[in-house]
């Protein structure tokens, strides 16, 4: 397998075309900040951006919807995120996010756990390309930021 094929695994090429969870997000949509939040993330290197909206249920990630422009890595990574965390308990989603970030920062040295990361292990090759890590993390950073916003809007969540 060439280094190019190692980077662009078939899973990535497929998700970059299918873009699960991608939709048009209306600017003026009203939502309850205690369960839904949006985050817009921007890559200053290339001008890529993603806007991602998370809706939480009682304990779980109920819905993810996103839009944005970007390379195949960033589009596929956000699509995989959608498939991986929707329906999962919030705590498990956070744990997946932490593992994903660790994998991307490993510079090719890590051995990602496919049990936890599922299709996201396809992005392990990205960790060897320092200038593409930001692409793979863009949508996931938006997800993390949106979770924090919801948490901030529900001050009682921590006590509960």
């Amino acid at each position: 397998m060439s280094s190019l094929e190692a980077l662009y695994q078939q899973v990535i090429l497929d998700h970059s075309k299918e873009k699960h969870g991608r939709t048009d997000l209306a600017d003026d949509e009203m939502f309850d900040p205690a369960s839904t939040a949006r985050s817009r993330q921007y890559n200053p290197l290339c001008g890529d951006e993603v806007t991602l909206q998370v809706t939480l249920g009682e304990q779980d990630v109920r819905e993810i919807a996103w839009t944005g422009e970007g390379c195949s890595i960033s589009q596929a990574a956000t699509s995989v995120l959608h498939d991986l965390v929707v329906g999962k308990p919030v705590e498990e989603a956070r744990s997946i996010l932490a593992d994903y970030r660790t994998m991307l920062r490993s510079r090719g040295a890590g051995t990602p756990d496919e049990e936890v990361l599922g299709d996201a292990v396809a992005f392990a090759g990205v960790s060897r390309h320092a200038n593409r890590v930001k692409c793979a993390i863009l949508g996931w950073t938006a997800f993390e930021d949106a979770l924090l916003r919801i948490e901030a809007a529900r001050p009682t969540a921590k006590e509960a």
């Binding site: 280094s3 190019l4 290339c46 890529d48 390379c71 692409c135």
Partner: peptide, 13 residues
Amino acid sequence: GVHPHDVGQVLDA
């Protein structure tokens, strides 16, 4: 249909 980052990556290879 192809983002510049992806173009640059294929050319780099």
